[in-house]
Design a protein around this nucleic acid. Sequence first.
DNA 1: TATGAATGAGACTTCATTCAT
DNA 2: CATGAATGAAGTCTCATTCAT
Lengths: 207, 207, 207, 207
Amino acid sequence: METKDKKLKILEEAEQLFASQGFSGTSVREIAKAADVNVAMISYYFGSKEQLLMEIFRYRSDYLKTQVDDLLNNTSLSSWDKLDILVDHYVNKFSDNQHLHRIILREANMNCNTEICAFIMERKKTHYGMIRQFFEQGQERGEFNKEVNVLWLYTLLPGMTKHTLFNQDFMAVILEEETGKAPDNAELMQQTKDHLKQFYRKILEIK
Amino acid sequence: METKDKKLKILEEAEQLFASQGFSGTSVREIAKAADVNVAMISYYFGSKEQLLMEIFRYRSDYLKTQVDDLLNNTSLSSWDKLDILVDHYVNKFSDNQHLHRIILREANMNCNTEICAFIMERKKTHYGMIRQFFEQGQERGEFNKEVNVLWLYTLLPGMTKHTLFNQDFMAVILEEETGKAPDNAELMQQTKDHLKQFYRKILEIK
Amino acid sequence: METKDKKLKILEEAEQLFASQGFSGTSVREIAKAADVNVAMISYYFGSKEQLLMEIFRYRSDYLKTQVDDLLNNTSLSSWDKLDILVDHYVNKFSDNQHLHRIILREANMNCNTEICAFIMERKKTHYGMIRQFFEQGQERGEFNKEVNVLWLYTLLPGMTKHTLFNQDFMAVILEEETGKAPDNAELMQQTKDHLKQFYRKILEIK
Amino acid sequence: METKDKKLKILEEAEQLFASQGFSGTSVREIAKAADVNVAMISYYFGSKEQLLMEIFRYRSDYLKTQVDDLLNNTSLSSWDKLDILVDHYVNKFSDNQHLHRIILREANMNCNTEICAFIMERKKTHYGMIRQFFEQGQERGEFNKEVNVLWLYTLLPGMTKHTLFNQDFMAVILEEETGKAPDNAELMQQTKDHLKQFYRKILEIK
DNA sequence: TATGAATGAGACTTCATTCAT
DNA sequence: CATGAATGAAGTCTCATTCAT
């Protein structure tokens, strides 16, 4: 039990450090220090630094499994209601796992012949697959504008979420200038959701 | 003259390597080899590896200076025409400087107390400032919907461009699946522009 | 009983590994894995890696005790017959314990202030002592040429045996080239014995 | 020039250390200390510890090139005279390069898929090839007994030389006991030569 | 008694940089 | 001005051993 805690601690500290400093920019010493364990433990537990990274991916792999399924199967909600729920869910999950996403952003093209890259690509395809189904359902139901390409509709979601989340400092500065108040993370996420919904509504509505 | 060429060569090779492997992931030896110069040259010319990075930023700093000004001052074009030009220009410039953008993406939060971060922040603000003016002009002219927040309108532009460009492999795979043909870079950029324009039109139009 | 088996297993696996990879080149983890026991067992049972090596020597120490005595005391056989028996016996025993001999070969001069080196030296002296007696008996009996130095006569025995055994791959290659057939270990040992006997006969015969 | 000296120093110190402690048993730190250079120099000059070992082999590779050729082509000397010269030459060369030979003895079967093992095998074949020619010449000339197998005649030479040289301590102890005087290295080598010649004479003479 | 977990020491190697020329 | 040589620091990983159970 205690061992599992230590492994978890290492995993989480490493995730954070990799996210903020990059994989190459983070030494195992730093990780060990942050997790308050002996340096040798990282090799002992994970084999190597690279395998530790891989383990982080495995550890986080199931974070956005299939809650979208429920949404697809739900027949009582309109597609517009579902859209709100989807956006909220997506942005929340993304925000919750922002460390992982930052790592992906940084290291995606690192050694693209390794397991990790295959892993990331698979994840991307899975996520897209789910969300594509959602948009297609709305279009088939006749609620969403059929003229809009689904891949690019999807792109809006990670595109804007990522940009907001990974430019938080910039967004905060601007919003402070424009509204007089620096938003906290929750406030920023809320605005992201609101504007995503607004944009989707305008793009998908049938005039 | 020859010295300047060597410095330039180093700068460009370093930019590419930093973009693909990250700052920490790239050794000065690699850069020296790629630029076909002695290892000592890098310290000799730039002082240190970090100062070389800074120099890359300076070297690329002026890439999106003020062509937007012309657009703002132009009175013969409609805001919709200007929008098309802006999107084309933005995406083109972004694509041309994707190495730099990838570096920014990676290293933005590296050591955020250094000159580099201030530099990046300044750049972001400048870019936003220009594009904000453009949207505000369209709204003031009564051509764009005034209800939409300008900051989030702007967010769409870098958000979608970045996402497309830095997920090129994913986009290519999906597009190949859906259309039967893998797009090249130019084709992908064109689609990015087209859909950005489509989205902006739907978001900004006044019903 | 089971404990004894485990110790034995460790001993034998370690012997083999030390023989093929050397003492420093073999980790306790490898030994533990090969013997299918926990890593800690080795320190637990033997105290340390070095003491394990020592234990191997003790374990094998009695392999060539005193069968030569019988030969010396035997009065019905001629010295020439005895020579054949001695050579067969020596080469057989050597071959049976080749792992140990390889370790001695490798590590003889390791830390020559330790118990191991004293041990090896004692063994060498004992072996030589026995065989010297044999040659001296043959000379005293007037069957062997008295002009030949006994120490150097002895040298022939380990010298040729070791060279053949520890250059098995080379011998095999050459013999294959010369006879068209690669000899197996038994065949090679037989040839070693035959030629040793031939050489001894020619050296020791009285013209 | 000075650099070459440093490389040479490293090479020679490493050779000696590898010979006495084995490859795995010798750390690059030890080598660096012995050669009075920075630890990093070894990687800098040779790439790695293993490549350093390889370099030692290359450095020593030409030590017994073709002096035997002269002997073969010489028609004025009898085969018996040539034999004396050959034995002297062989033992001298072996003694001069005993460090290398000890390394070969130890590490021959280390990683027998590597360049080093191929290298050693090639060397062995070359040496044997030369000496085989010598014995065959003597047999063809009718001076040496044709009944004796040449491969095993050859075996006597490295077999006894190695055994004497690598059991110097034992030989010294015995010789001191038997003659009252501990022989130095030169004395031991001389005895090795003398007895080799004696043995060869008895084995090869035609009665 | 036996063992999985843990550790300090030290292994080899690469790093960015500096020095002497 | 330019560079090959050199270096101290730090990198990751493995080592034999010990500890707590």
